[in-house]
Nucleic acid binder design. Structure first.
Lengths: 215, 215
DNA sequence: GTGAATAGCAACTCGCCCGTATCATTTGCA
DNA sequence: TGCAAATGATACGGGCGAGTTGCTATTCAC
């Protein structure tokens, strides 16, 4: 006895393939936003649906469950952060110090990006429930940069620019220093100025190069 | 019409003040454990109650709600991690390098402690809901150590042991390096050996001292 | 055009958990 | 000794969110 005396239907209908695909991208963007803001548990499917003016039904038509939607959205964010090799190579400057500074800035901008740091925290926080996401993040985002720094340093060692050393330790230490400051600042609610960051990056690079100066 | 034909009573009764206090400590320990393991949302009051063989009733007699219980338990964990000033002073060794190594080890052991890193992650993850906890952690745990390193370095500058420099930057960079490696390792599921850590700490201290060697 | 697949909506079920209330029981403490 | 505090057992209201289903409306394919 579905009377429907006052049919409140507003809009419906099957969208074009392009329309559907665009909506789907919107959905993933919204899901990412909300997950980053509120975490996995607190974010509800209906919050996401409301954000893009859909209903749960439509979301569940594409994604089997909340966990899968989460994985998909986060993996997408990780992929956006991947730096392709040719970009890394393009960071090569003439002088070692300038190259390191360029790499440092690349990472800082990733972290300072609208939700860059939240992504890290979310992935850490959910690393129990989604260990594969954590692994993916390290493998695809963190590690390549460290490895690249190590390679740059190794070349500098070979060229006699710096003293022989454990380039892996040095690279890891360098990235830790670069990231540590901004992370503390941003998480603490501060927005470090370009100048402050510049100062810190300069300090870090100088410290590393002085520490590794050939005897 | 509560019949209660089969009263399955087992045990009850009023405990001694000391007993009650002891149970209360047990409760907070259990709550902390579970919050660290599962996070705020997933952990339920009944999980905590079961862990210490209590009922919700008893918990709610002491804590107005779940959020307050969370704050109390976490604050307790933070306080346990606070290093009293006299302990910091006792880390002073004759040589600057040895002092820095001692400080580094102190922090590494905090992080490698059974739930040391989880505490950080939990606090970060819940920093939206409980910003005051996040602030407390930084103020009471992170910052004092960095400040102490800065003070140690300043004294070394005054003594001419190292070149004049921004000791705040240097201290921050040092602690970042010290913490960065172990964090990546532990979160990644690895358990770095004492020897590996020793090697890293040694490397870090040497890098800093060489980088700051007086001209 | 016509039929079938598809996207959409709304309402529903189911289960979970917080917080509270009730009653019985034990026991510290005055 | 007797009272009240403290706790256990249990039930339940209220709310909420995940996932499902029935139905409708539109578009794609032939």
């Amino acid at each position: 006895m579905t009377d429907k005396s006052a049919p409140p239907r507003v809009r419906a209908g099957r969208p074009t393939r392009e329309q559907a695909e665009a909506r789907h991208q919107e959905l993933l963007d919204a899901a990412l936003d909300l997950f980053l803001e509120h975490g996995f548990e607190v974010t509800t499917i209906e919050m996401i649906a409301a954000r893009v003016s859909m209903t749960k039904r439509t979301i569940y038509a594409r994604h089997p469950d909340k966990a899968t939607l989460f994985r998909t959205a986060i993996q997408r964010a990780i992929e956006r952060q991947i730096v392709p090799p040719h970009v890394l190579e393009a960071l090569e400057r003439g002088k070692l110090g300038a190259t390191l500074e360029a790499i440092a800035w690349l990472r800082i901008e990733q972290i300072a990006a609208p939700h860059g740091l939240r992504l890290q925290h979310l992935i850490n926080a959910e690393s129990h429930r989604f260990p594969e996401i954590f692994t993916a993040y390290v493998e695809q985002s963190t590690r390549p940069l460290i490895d690249h720094v190590a390679a740059v340093l190794q070349r500098a060692v070979d060229a006699g620019e710096i003293a022989p050393t454990r380039v892996d330790h040095a690279a890891s230490a360098f990235m830790s220093m670069v990231v540590g400051g901004p992370v503390r600042a941003i998480v603490g609610g501060l927005a470090p100025t370009r100048q402050e960051l510049d100062e810190k990056v300069g300090f870090t690079v100088r410290l590393l190069l002085d520490g590794l100066r050939p005897r």
